[in-house]
Design a protein around this nucleic acid. Sequence first.
DNA 1: ATGCGGGGTGGAAACGTTTCCACTCCCTGC
DNA 2: GCAGGGAGTGGAAACGTTTCCACCCCGCAT
Lengths: 346, 346
Amino acid sequence: MATIKDVAKRAGVGLGTASRVIAGNGPVSEDAIRRVRKAIEELKFRPSHAARVLQKGQSQTIGVFVPLVHGSFYTPILHAIYTALRASGRHMVVDFGQSLESERQDALEGAEFLTDRGCDGLIVMATALTSADIDRIAERQPRFVLLNRSIPRFQDRCFNPDHRAAGAAAAHALCEAGHRRLAVIEGPKTSRDNTLRMRGFEEALGGYGIDAGTLPRARGDFSPESGRAGTRELLGRDGSFTALFCANDEMAMGALSYLGQAGVAVPGRLSVMGYDGIDLSELTVPPLTTVLIPWREIAANALNHLLNLCYGSALPVEREIPARVLWRESVARIGKGAAQGRLAPS
Amino acid sequence: MATIKDVAKRAGVGLGTASRVIAGNGPVSEDAIRRVRKAIEELKFRPSHAARVLQKGQSQTIGVFVPLVHGSFYTPILHAIYTALRASGRHMVVDFGQSLESERQDALEGAEFLTDRGCDGLIVMATALTSADIDRIAERQPRFVLLNRSIPRFQDRCFNPDHRAAGAAAAHALCEAGHRRLAVIEGPKTSRDNTLRMRGFEEALGGYGIDAGTLPRARGDFSPESGRAGTRELLGRDGSFTALFCANDEMAMGALSYLGQAGVAVPGRLSVMGYDGIDLSELTVPPLTTVLIPWREIAANALNHLLNLCYGSALPVEREIPARVLWRESVARIGKGAAQGRLAPS
DNA sequence: ATGCGGGGTGGAAACGTTTCCACTCCCTGC
DNA sequence: GCAGGGAGTGGAAACGTTTCCACCCCGCAT
């Protein structure tokens, strides 16, 4: 591979001049520019990224950690970050976790790897991280933002939806549609955002005179398979509920799949509501009613903040982007005293 | 950040000794190892990746280009590559394309970016690349493998399923199940693998006395939305077919979604068959019958070959991994002269 | 004439590693 | 007693950039 020295020699200029032409900054004569350009062309010169990083201490690269490679949930977020980053002329290196159980450890190692790798900043998405974990990350790489995790001490670097409000919105939607006998499939215990959305959901239920303590509940792990299993379990225990709230869309899709095979009409006999609003959720039969969490926008804003941190840009950063219910067809609106069973008075 | 010089000084050893301890190769005394380890600990030393790459000319990193960030199709492939790579102690940098239309240009730029970035080798997945494009890539980075693209000149670096045989398998499955009136939704014109699977499909049809020329066909772009539109179009033109073959699962899911909303019973009135075998395909209602293309295995073998190329490993490389039909419930088996319509004699 | 400022230039130094060579011990075998 | 060799060591050189400083030359004001 040709180096900048070769270019300089061939163009008959000094090292500094060649460098200035390539970087396009310092003062250089028209003539020198032409000659250097020509030499670059002829030698097929490409600057060495490693040498540049070593010298400048900047790589124009942002590191991103997400817990999983697969999954309809994370890829759109990655997509949003990727396109915004490319638009600003920088690049992205991604590191993935192996599973939701190992999320914490994976995220820690991922952050370390990305930092060692010379990333100028980090976007870390990992709900399981503790406050001390964040400190550890911050120690090595002070430029980072957190997605879907809230830490008071790092409030300005945390970007997350209001899961509590979104959970409440789900409850409102279901209740306003006339449902009173509900059931839920939650996410895993380690997921703080699951806890939040469930809390919001249950609190809102109180406003309709429903006791959250008696809510039939199953626990899943956010996978479709667990949604399927949870539905079977719930139906086996006591099938008298008219609506099922799933803590994410993938579990809701599992539920829909199970119900389809079991011959339970949706929303005729049972309504199903999801959470997140992943792209695929509109493809189910019937199309899934869900809470749309504006993940793409949240990620884009987190990135803007990080870019400001890293490169002193002044990009706008919006923090409060509300979730909203996406009404489709998997939730029935039932009248007071409808056929669906004994409804508690509103 | 502490450098290796600081470490050496603190440990009271020379630069070379410190380096040897860190790399774990050369001969070093027990005592020196202990002292260097201690110094590293105390100074929180982390070697500079950039400096290492600059010096060694190797980054232990493989670059991967895939056309799209989102999509249920590419992520499992990425996942397979990622996990295999981590298992061998190396890393992955991914670059994405923007759309299927710009695939060719994106792949070219992506390969260039990844090469500049110091990747030791490349995995490029881009059907639209021409033979000349590959030459151009090879010129800069001779270590690469191609996924889902076949170029005679680079035969040993091409890893792709036998789309023609897989297409034929789909046709056989449908015909053996008793279907004679078929329709298809193809992928985009630029997609060579679409062309191949369709050719296989049509050739196999000949064996059942079906004239492929009269096959009702719609063209999609692999997206669910286009599967939906294609189905509507086909049904509007002439609804007498009993089975619909879609060139990929996402279009098949779109078809299923449309049919569900239109009240067309699947597989009661119309059978649907997909292609690829993405994870989500088992979640549809009814579960999608599809041709399972062993993408994960193919990708893993391509990676092994690349690793052999780059690092002189001797990993096993399997080239012929057959596709197979995944029988689920979206295709009905109908008897001769069944209620489904006038069937041509087998 | 002389001084001064600035456009244009060349090259040394620095970034943090690894590799290689030269050197010192010290042990072994004669 | 000495040659030979291997374990252990230190440091210079090199990897390919960018940055900074010194310098030249020219035009302009004094």
